[in-house]
């Protein structure tokens, strides 16, 4: 356990679909459970994960995803994305995964730091009041890289 005391993980979340939100959240939480320090940086579509209106309605989009086993012309039919999203929610619930908002709160309460990208905020015309209360602040890429000094970096 003490082996992890100097470890630090910096996770960059750049995607806002349901299936791309969970890997970062799970890894951040797992790291904290093991005593590894965590810095999370949300940028581009990853901003949806920390957007308080959007974070609990992220979608799983089956188009262009060969892993679903579904031909694209079927995956593109209206109604397929909500259906695929619903199925993924069921699967997540079955394995006791919390909803995105609650997950972020767990990570925050466990001592993980959550940062929003300044550039993405400007590009998407977002205000700090649009963000979930767990967000520790808005920082630029250079500031984040400073915080991530010595950390293992994951880009998702």
């Amino acid at each position: 356990m003490s082996d992890n005391e100097d470890r630090k993980l910096a996770i960059i979340c750049s995607k806002g679909t349901l299936d791309m939100a969970y890997p970062g959240l799970v890894l951040a939480n797992a790291a904290l459970m093991m005593g590894i320090e965590v810095e999370m940086f949300f940028t581009f579509w990853g901003m949806d994960i920390i957007h308080k209106e959007k974070q609990n309605s992220l979608k799983f989009v089956p188009v262009g995803n060969p892993s679903t086993g579904m031909p694209n012309f079927i995956a593109a039919i209206p109604g397929m994305t909500p259906m695929a999203t619903k199925m993924m929610h069921k699967g997540l619930e079955k394995i006791d995964m919390p909803p995105v908002g609650e997950f972020l709160e767990m990570i925050h309460d466990a001592g993980g730091n959550i940062w929003a990208c300044r550039m993405a905020m400007d590009m998407m015309n977002l205000k700090e009041s649009d963000l979930a209360p767990e967000v520790d602040g808005v920082v630029g890429a250079m500031e984040f890289l400073e915080m991530a000094e010595g950390a293992q970096i994951l880009f998702i």
Partner: peptide, 29 residues
């Protein structure tokens, strides 16, 4: 959560497992 991480700082999963007589935790959550 907040209190749990204060009570069992720096890796609560392993510490709680040890103290409670469990084996090394393997779950993801």
């Amino acid at each position: 959560t907040k209190e749990l991480y204060k009570l069992f700082p720096k890796g609560p999963a392993g510490k709680i497992a040890k103290l409670s007589g469990m084996s090394k935790p393997k779950g993801c959550i």
